[in-house]
Computed example of a mutant assay.
Amino acid sequence: MVEDRRRHAPATARNRDPILAILRAELPESGTVLEVASGTGEHAVHFAGALPGLIWQPSDPDLDALTSIRAWAEAARLPNLRPPLLLDAVAADWPIAQADALICINMVHISPWAATLGLMAGAARILPAGAPLILYGPYIRAEVETAPSNLAFDMDLKVRNPAWGLRDLADVAAIAAPAGLALKRVVEMPANNLTVVFRRG
Rank of each mutant, 00 (worst) to 15 (best):
L27Y: 12
Q98I: 01
E3S: 06
G53D: 01
G31A: 07
W94I: 02
V36D: 02
D168G: 10
G130Y: 04
A13H: 11
A152I: 08
A179Y: 08
A147F: 05
A44I: 12
P132A: 05
L85V: 05
V90H: 05
Y139R: 01
A121H: 14
A44T: 11
S111N: 00
F47H: 15
M155T: 15
L51R: 05
G118M: 05
R14S: 09
G122H: 11
L157Y: 02
V90P: 00
A37N: 11
L54Q: 07
A71R: 13
R70C: 09
V90Y: 00
A163I: 00
H43N: 07
V144Q: 14
A21M: 03
V108D: 01
A124G: 15
A176Q: 07
L85H: 11
P132D: 10
R199K: 14
D168A: 13
A11D: 06
R199D: 02
L194C: 09
V90F: 01
L27F: 12
V108C: 11
L183Q: 09
A65C: 14
E74P: 06
R16S: 02
G49H: 10
R185F: 08
L34C: 06
D171Y: 07
D88C: 09
A147Q: 03
A73N: 00
M189W: 12
I69V: 15
V186T: 13
R7A: 14
V108Q: 02
M120Q: 05
G201W: 08
V144L: 04
L34K: 11
A91L: 07
L194H: 11
P61G: 01
S149G: 04
N80F: 12
T195F: 04
L127C: 10
L117N: 07
N80Q: 14
Q98S: 14
P148T: 10
L117F: 04
A124P: 08
N192S: 12
V159T: 08
P61W: 06
F153N: 00
L20P: 03
L117E: 15
L87D: 03
R77S: 14
H46M: 00
H43S: 03
D4N: 15
T32M: 09
S68G: 14
N192T: 08
V144E: 12
P58F: 13
A123V: 08
H43M: 03
P10N: 04
A121K: 15
R125P: 10
C104E: 02
G130C: 08
